[in-house]
Amino acid sequence: MAAESGGGLTEYIQHHLKHNMVADGTVHLDSWATALGLGLLFCFWFWSMARKATAGVPSKGQAFVEMVIEFVDGQVKDVFHGSRTFIAPFALTIFMWVFFMNAMDLLPLDLIGLLVTLIAGEETAHNTYWRIVPTADPNTTFAMSTVVFIMTIFYSIKAKGGWGFTKELFTAPFHAHGVGAKAALALPNFALNVVEYLSKPVSLAMRLFGNMYGGELVFMLIAGLAASWVTFFPGVLFNAAWAIFHILIILLQAFIFMVLSVVYLAMAHEAH
């Protein structure tokens, strides 16, 4: 995955944008494996901190974990007014997992290629594809937003009942009196509700994907800028500046994904 020697910047970017695919290209192995590994890392980290937690003066690690948990729980408490027994851990998982996946964008672009070169040689590295940022892959973001969508439907039915949820699809947002008027507005109401429900997971997934994909492309362009000795030092300065700014994007996108997920669940949980 190192920079191509003769292909130029375009081939270099195309190489880094290619996924490691299996099952005839339907599964992006790199996104799946990296996301799974980061999720297990998050679970192990918080489990180990909870296992070693003390009632006295907490360690720095315990204090940090407690601060994150209290922050997420406070955000959920402000938005979701039902039982937070499941929603708060769910929101914490979303926030930390998305943050971990976003943070992979801060790793050196050619790190995987360098490791493969040292282990298996340059030829193998040239034919190895591994995109390290799972959230720059729409498969990852749409998978997460689909889970949120399914939970939204579940909480809607739980709060309003199966008949109440179905009735709301055909009677809101436009209300009418009389059988004829209700029948006339049934299809427009249903169409608007379908668009509203489907737009939530689509916007949730595309917002995260677009920001992380754009950030990844900027890092690739900067890496191409620093490919020669003439532009090496300006490229390093630009890369450092963008990485510092990108930390804010990484945190902000994880926070937005978490908050919007909780907001959608809260809206579904509210019985009309």
Rank of each mutant, 00 (worst) to 15 (best):
P138S: 07
G113L: 05
G61Y: 05
A176L: 03
Q253W: 02
L221R: 03
D110L: 00
F238V: 09
D73Q: 08
L237D: 12
W97H: 11
L107E: 11
S59Q: 06
E123Y: 00
F71D: 13
I112P: 06
W242Y: 11
S228R: 07
A226C: 02
T34N: 07
G25M: 02
A271I: 06
F174A: 01
R131K: 15
D24I: 00
Q62S: 05
L106E: 10
F257M: 12
L40N: 11
K158P: 05
I153C: 14
N189R: 01
D105C: 01
I249V: 10
M104Y: 00
F100N: 09
E168Y: 03
V179T: 08
A3M: 14
Q253D: 07
S31T: 14
F238I: 09
N193E: 13
H175K: 12
N102M: 09
F64P: 03
A227R: 02
L118P: 06
G82H: 01
G7Q: 02
A183F: 03
G164P: 02
F154N: 05
Y12S: 03
G25V: 08
P89R: 09
F154H: 03
A254W: 08
Y213D: 07
F165Y: 13
K77N: 15
A55V: 02
G180I: 10
A186F: 00
V195C: 04
L221S: 05
